[in-house]
Simulated scan of single mutants.
Amino acid sequence: MSTYPEHYTPEDIRQVEQIKAWMAERNYKQAALARLARVSSSSLSQILGGTYATAPGKLLVNVANAMKHADDTASDTVAAVETSVFRVANTAFQMARRYRNFAVVSAFVGTGKTFAAKHYQRTTPNTYLIEATPTMTVQSLIKLLARTVAGFDGKGSIDDKFRAIVDSLVNTDSLLIVDEADTLTPHVLHTLRRLRDLANVGIVLCGTEHLTGLIRPAHGQFDQIRSRAGFWPETIRGITADDAAALVQAAFGDEDISDEVIARLFAYCKGSARMLIEGLVAAITQFRNGRELNVQLVDAVAKQALCLQSVA
């Protein structure tokens, strides 16, 4: 084992050695891990080399979380990178579940809220995710929830099905996530409010920026839900540059991606994780043909495959 300074605790040393072993086993580049962990490459290099000037414990936690996340999502079609949007959404899910109240997540289209909701539902027991539609009625909502939550797909009145839903959920640690909630009518939202009150479970409403506009006005049509919202951050307008860096790094594995390439991809995506991953990264992967991933390639793919205006 290498020699470490005195301000490295035994736990710090154990984690450093674990990181080195993890990277060696997976042939994972240090720069790639640093980017996923939101730690500068120089800081991670100093930490692993035993030359970091202060206690490294806090940064080691970030690195350990990134390693776990990389392992947990290795088989995902798209890696569930912990972007700022992903973290806000997960905070909403956790708080609504813990405090059995409403949480509201509003974000611009393509920022990743739906991806976060699907990942949370897939990886967390007793989580139910439904997607609202503009034509959803109280009856169609209750029928959907009866099948999804209570396994009730037979005959019976709407009231019978609603009571079956309540009986299945009441006082459990269940969580209901409703995506596209900005399309719901006041009657459907009132039904969700009654469900929350009777079953004593958490409900998260996810939607576009219009969701906040509907709920926020005092004494508006959604005021009864507004008063029950325990977590309700500002509308998310887009991913950050750090988010983009982590997403790009995850998409290309342990390949060493230059800061210039990441900056150019971020400029093209204009804050949309969907455009970044499903548009730019997918097109580059399709048309790269073994070429070096550089700014010139990004510009060419953006123009020729996606008809995007130059940001150079």
Rank of each mutant, 00 (worst) to 15 (best):
A89P: 02
I225Y: 06
F162S: 06
T137W: 02
N101G: 12
L145G: 07
H119Y: 14
D160G: 07
T114Y: 02
R147Y: 00
I142N: 05
N171C: 11
E82W: 04
D182E: 13
K161S: 13
H187M: 08
G112Q: 09
A89K: 05
V85E: 05
G154D: 06
N90E: 13
A150N: 11
P217C: 12
A92M: 11
L144G: 12
A199P: 00
P217Y: 11
K113Q: 11
I177N: 04
L169W: 03
A150D: 04
H219D: 12
I203S: 06
T212R: 10
E180T: 06
I165H: 05
K155D: 09
H190C: 03
I215R: 01
L145E: 10
V188S: 07
H210V: 02
V88L: 12
T114P: 02
K155P: 03
R87D: 12
E180L: 03
V188L: 07
G156V: 09
T148D: 04
P134C: 00
D160M: 09
V201A: 09
I203Q: 06
L214V: 09
Q121N: 07
I203N: 02
K155A: 13
A181K: 11
A103I: 02
Q139W: 00
V105P: 01
A107L: 06
T114G: 05
A218Y: 12
A150Y: 01
L189T: 03
T114F: 03
L205I: 05
T137N: 09
G112C: 08
C206N: 09
L214P: 01
L205Q: 06
R216Q: 14
T83L: 06
P217G: 11
Y120T: 11
I142D: 06
R163E: 14
D159V: 04
V105A: 08
F93Q: 09
K155H: 11
R193A: 07
P217Q: 15
F86K: 05
S140H: 04
F86N: 13
V149Y: 02
L141N: 13
T135G: 13
S106I: 03
I177P: 00
A199W: 00
H119W: 14
F222R: 04
Y120C: 07
S168L: 07
A96W: 03
